[in-house]
């Protein structure tokens, strides 16, 4: 299941132009991802979580939402201290844990802990339809936008079709194992899924033609950049600004 957008308490922040939120998320992510100084990363981390608290979003729920990503990071902690060459900072029995390795893993963790909550706050609280329209208004190619929207709509239908096929196979005593029969069955299953998706696409297109579709999508949402959004643009520029400024100042003292 795709997660639903997190409910964001009503506030002036919720009503700002969604385009502004997407642009901020992109700028902030780049600023933090490209930073290397601890102070800059720390500032990014602080800004993200402070914003979450200010907007009334529960930090606990945000943490739960982004937790799966930290599985990958745990993996980095298991590998990097042992593999990055450099002087040992600690010893774990016979294994030396290198200082640059630990620093690298720590840096990545801090970046993730700053970028993921920021994206959750800025984009994860928007309905998918709004994200689509905002992207469209930001001149993202229409095909990509509709790919996103159609994925969101049909991923459940296709999942349901997969489950039906799999259930039918199991009801005929199919038990997956490590053998050619299993591989072949799954190959058929996936092939059937592609075939059905193609047929479905054909039908959807027909239904759209019947409702007067002629190659262009119109949107219902009217996204407007209002006067107050100008102040919001300035406010939202502060976190990426701080991160970039700190990074630059510390690198060029």
């Amino acid at each position: 299941m795709l997660p639903e957008p997190l409910p964001l308490p009503d506030s002036p922040f919720r009503r700002i132009d969604p385009r502004l939120r997407i642009v901020t998320a992109v700028l902030f992510s780049f600023a933090v991802a490209l930073a290397s100084e601890w102070a800059a990363l720390g500032a990014g981390f602080g800004c993200a979580w402070l914003a979450i608290i200010l907007c009334g979003l529960s930090p606990w729920r945000v943490l739960k939402r982004i937790a799966p990503a930290f599985g990958f990071i745990l993996f980095l902690w298991a590998v990097l201290p042992l593999t990055v060459p450099g002087p040992a900072l600690l010893r774990l029995g016979p294994l030396p844990l290198s200082a640059p390795g630990i620093a690298l893993a720590g840096g990545i963790t801090l970046k993730a802990a700053a970028i993921l909550p920021a994206i959750t706050l800025l984009i994860g609280t928007l309905p998918v339809a709004t994200i689509g329209h905002a992207l469209q208004r930001l001149r993202v190619p229409e095909k990509l936008v509709y790919l996103l929207l159609f994925c969101y709509r049909y991923i459940f239908v296709i999942e349901e079709e997969y489950r039906r096929l799999e259930r039918a196979a199991r009801l005929r005593s199919f038990r997956p194992g490590t053998n050619l029969h299993t591989y072949r069955t799954y190959a058929y299953l996936i092939a059937m899924l592609f075939l059905r998706a193609a047929l479905r696409a054909d039908q959807v297109h027909r239904a759209m033609l019947c409702r007067g579709f002629h190659g262009r999508f119109h949107t219902l949402e009217e996204i407007r950049f209002r006067a107050t959004d100008r102040y919001w643009a300035l406010a939202l520029a502060i976190p990426p600004g701080i991160v970039t400024a700190l990074q630059w100042l510390l690198l060029h003292p």
Binding site: P127, G132, L149, R153, Y154, R200, F213, H214
Partner: peptide
Amino acid sequence: LLFQDADDQLFSPTVLEDVAFGPLN
């Protein structure tokens, strides 16, 4: 034309957008 499978007919993320698709066209 009402299609046999509603999942063919409804393709928008929300109900309102789907119903508004025709009038917009």
